[in-house]
């Protein structure tokens, strides 16, 4: 009779069927959305700096907002956009909104409607939506020279010269604050051109996976605040004292992180029990990433 192999359960755990992991992630996502527990949220210094930068603008200040994201990352950036827009509206600021992503206008239009309705603001009186323009870096360079050259009409086809709110507003120089919420390297272009070349105070919002790339710009004061991912958006909502999709989503994100952490720890415990840990050995995995 074969002897019972030590750590048999550990070996089985190391070969855990990925469908069990998928089911756990599904439950970790779904349950907190159905039964929210409202875990505490404390704003980080970076998000507070972003909030304070917007908050100290006097009423009537024009803010250039470039919202550069598409539906794939809307879970992170759409609540952020709504929170920042609501903050601008609540403070009486005038956002001029544009996008450099072709599939973004539908999302931005919706964000403007949600934020505008919540704060009682109207299109072309309290905000302008310029729509999409192809060219990314060259458009940002063009915004430093002439907005009308880049966007002769707004998203709905109204010439900018027929929108009273746009009178006398034609380049970065006319905007005391630039806000870019981005899921791509467009953020780099704004930092390089708007914040550095044209010396505009700038606030940046980015996906969580990108956010750490921009910490050096925060310490060099090229950006004045940084909102990172859904957590950053939830912190902004907390500072605004509103409950949006970001705060609602944080419970689910928390439970998913805990689930993954527990799975990783269990996997490593199993590895240790089966003698897989080799001090001084090479890294890497013997297993594939799926079954």
């Amino acid at each position: 009779m074969a002897a019972k192999r030590p750590g048999g359960w550990a070996a089985r755990l190391m070969g855990l069927d990925r469908r069990i992991i998928f089911a756990l992630i599904f439950l970790a996502t779904g349950l907190p959305l159905l039964f929210p527990v409202n875990l505490p949220i404390t704003p980080s210094p970076r998000v507070r700096a972003a909030f304070d930068t917007v908050d100290r603008q006097p009423p009537g200040t024009y803010v250039l907002m470039s919202l550069d994201y598409e539906p794939d990352i809307k879970a992170e950036l759409q609540p952020m956009a709504i929170a920042v827009l609501r903050h601008c509206f609540r403070k009486g600021l005038k956002p001029i909104v544009l996008t450099l992503y072709p599939a973004a206008p539908g999302l931005i239009e919706r964000a403007l409607v949600i934020a505008g309705t919540a704060e009682g603001k109207k299109r072309n009186e309290d905000y302008v939506f310029l729509g999409y323009k192809s060219g990314s870096q060259s458009v940002i360079l063009g915004l430093g020279e002439s907005i009308r050259q880049m966007f002769p009409n707004d998203f709905w086809g109204t010439p900018l010269d027929k929108i009273p709110m746009m009178k006398g507003k034609n380049s970065f120089a006319d905007f005391p604050l630039v806000i870019n919420l981005s899921g791509s390297s467009i953020a780099d272009y704004y930092i390089r051109i708007a914040a550095t070349r044209y010396q505009r105070p700038m606030v940046l919002g980015a996906t969580a996976v990108m956010a750490t790339d921009y910490y050096p710009y925060l310490s060099s004061k090229q950006i004045l605040g940084l909102i990172g991912g859904m957590k950053g958006a939830a912190e902004y909502e907390k500072l605004m004292d509103i409950t949006g999709d970001a705060r609602r989503g944080m419970d689910a994100q928390s439970l998913i992180h805990v689930t993954i952490a527990i799975l990783v720890l269990l996997g490593n415990l199993a590895l240790f029990l089966t003698g897989g840990f080799r001090p001084g050995g090479s890294g890497g995995s013997r297993e594939g990433t799926g079954r």
């Binding site: 992991i21 998913i256 799975l263 990783v264 050995g281 090479s282 995995s285 297993e287 990433t289």
Partner: peptide, 25 residues
């Protein structure tokens, strides 16, 4: 588009479990 991106959570969890191993210091 949102669904496609959301699927990443499932694959990342599976990949983290299998590849994130403390094999050395």
């Amino acid at each position: 588009a949102s669904t496609m991106f959301a699927l990443l959570a499932f694959f990342i969890a599976s990949a983290a479990f299998r590849a994130f191993r403390a094999r050395n210091a």
